[in-house]
Write a protein that binds this DNA or RNA. Structure first.
Lengths: 341, 341
DNA sequence: AAATATGAAGTAATCGATTTCATTTTTGAA
DNA sequence: TTCAAAAATGAAATCGATTACTTCATATTT
């Protein structure tokens, strides 16, 4: 375990001041070419590594950003993080990840320790159980730039990158209608969360625009689990008028629905069309590939990173709120496509 | 944007020295109960937040660790990271993530900037294109603790957490044999990578132990893509003696194989049994669920974190190499299970 | 040749927290 | 009441890098 080499070691060896070494290392113009090269060469020889911690303390910039998500091993979130990382790495930033486990208390903890760590910014997708935003506003009050992605809260002055969930719901429903479906059910998530509310609204609007009646008994709240989709189908099929399509706000409930429908002897997409949400990898790989809405997570991450970088370059005084809304991509696969059959 | 409160602000306000404030904040016994409580109370009132950067610089411990993986949005890697994060967060560590894109040059960059950032340790799964280990040994020479997971390199003194890929290959093959399969093909990855070599060796051993001949034309190198699995099947089915089972070292090639086999009118598992590797989420969700080997990534991450923590607690002098080998779990599903039919 | 401008390098303060060593205050025993 | 021991506190150095301010030597101008 070697001693770490500092600029003082270099300055001693060369009989110059640490300031000179620092200037040489930082391409400061106030230094002669010859000393600069000498310092650079010596630094290389001595295997000098800059201590970014010291630099960060001095400059007040750590070059670290924090990303707060419910779970990092969800396809959607890990892809967003990948996007953020790829966009920020070339700018010298590192990405610190935190999980909330969809837990409000954890979220508060994470946000606070991130601030202690002197991160330069926070990217976050709020937990489902987060109802108030005190902790976030406290972070903002300390002057920490924050960008929401996907699951946002409306706080004045805070930028966000989301997809147009309304449009997504609309497109998905409309496509089902175009397949000739007239009795379209909807599996929703928690309507307190903006994203689910918007998908729901899009569904309603598409029905209305096409003169289809909205039936409350066709709208069920599910919990993104496979079983939830299966039991929702059971519930629906007790109705007198069975649906002929399902637009699910989650791929997992869509999958559960499909499994249950098959078990009941129904044909997909002939008897019932099904569309999910998120474009989870598995939807593509099924023998009966499932239609879904792609949320372009990689792009979302990259754009969130860009919004952050812009904010960093702006005049510190003016922080402009930027709301980027990405266009979702409806991916029609066999589960809602009667034409190919 | 408020000014940040430091211990000096507190010390000024209370007319005590910064040393006293620091001691109070750190539960140092060399301080009277009354001043401690006064300081703590004032700190709370002034909304004091510890600057972990300054602390890190002073102590030489950043409480950050780096994780280097090919891509963070692969189910396996993101789950390992989740495990690491969950285990280390309670100990005050933060996890910084880096992607290599399976690129040797990136890997070098990432490892170097991590060291500059003064991380306390590195977790890594090496890139496929990484053949030599100079960059890693350089990091070790600087005294950075490093733990490999899954894809390791053999470097003396370095701990690792892997699964028993040999056993995994053996179990998977054996199960196929128990199904009555006698002509078992193997789709391997790059045999330069230890993990693929071990799976391959396990496959060979299982055949030998069961007096089945190893046929070179049954062993194909694939690249973890669906198409690669499909074309491998095409190649195999040009042979005079077609296989009656496939053990694939990747779930994706297994999927490609299944798709191709179906296209050719073959029945699974009746005509051909197929087993994949990694237990990718989709394998479970298929209409024909695919048998696979689970690598227990969450556990792997947690154990890697524990190994790191142990190393941190050890006498700095003695660094004990620890090689943890986890037992893989063969998950038998329909694609290789003839009994349920 | 004297005065001024220019460039190169050094000095010392700073970022915020911790810690060694020295000093002051308090406590308790004689 | 006195004095040593213990407890509480302060001063200042330190971690490593950056930078405003100074100093010094050389180059340029008159």
């Amino acid at each position: 375990m070697k001693e770490k080499v500092t600029i003082y070691d270099i300055s001693k060896k060369l009989n110059v001041s640490a300031a000179t070494v620092s200037r040489a290392l930082n391409n400061n113009p106030k230094i002669s070419l010859s000393t600069r090269e000498l310092v650079l060469k010596t630094a290389r020889e001595m295997n000098y590594k800059q201590n970014r911690l010291a630099q960060a303390l001095k400059s007040g910039k750590s070059n670290n950003v924090g990303v707060i998500v419910p779970y990092i091993n969800r396809s959607f979130f890990s892809s967003v993080i990948r996007g953020i990382e790829e966009e920020l790495t070339p700018h010298g930033y590192h990405v610190i990840i935190c999980q909330t486990h969809e837990n409000y208390e954890y979220e508060i903890d994470q946000i606070n320790t991130l601030i202690n760590t002197q991160i330069d910014g926070i990217f976050m997708s709020v937990s489902k159980t987060t109802l108030n935003t005190e902790h976030i506003e406290k972070a903002l009050a300390e002057g920490t730039p924050l960008v929401f992605f996907d699951r946002k809260k409306d706080i004045p002055g805070v930028s966000s990158v989301t997809i147009d969930d309304f449009k997504a719901g609309y497109l998905a429903t409309e496509q089902l209608i175009k397949q000739g479906c007239k009795k379209i059910a909807h599996f929703s998530g928690d309507l307190n969360l903006e994203i689910y509310k918007n998908r729901y609204d899009g569904y309603i609007k598409a029905l209305e625009d096409n003169n289809l009646k909205v039936k409350q008994e066709y709208i069920l709240k599910t919990n993104s689990k496979i079983e939830s989709g299966a039991s929702a189908v059971e519930e629906l099929w007790e109705l007198n008028e069975k649906p002929d399509a399902i637009f699910s706000a989650s791929d997992y409930t869509a999958l559960g629905a499909i499994q249950q429908l098959k078990k009941m002897g129904l044909k997909i997409p002939e008897d019932v069309c099904v569309t999910g949400f998120s474009n989870e990898p598995f939807t593509k790989y099924m023998e009966l590939p499932i239609s879904s809405v792609d949320q372009t997570p990689l792009t979302m991450g990259k754009i969130a990173a860009q919004v952050f970088l812009e904010q960093m370059n702006e005049n510190q005084k003016v922080s402009i709120e930027k709301k980027v809304v990405l266009t979702p991509e409806l991916i029609v696969r066999e589960s809602s496509n009667r034409r190919t059959k």
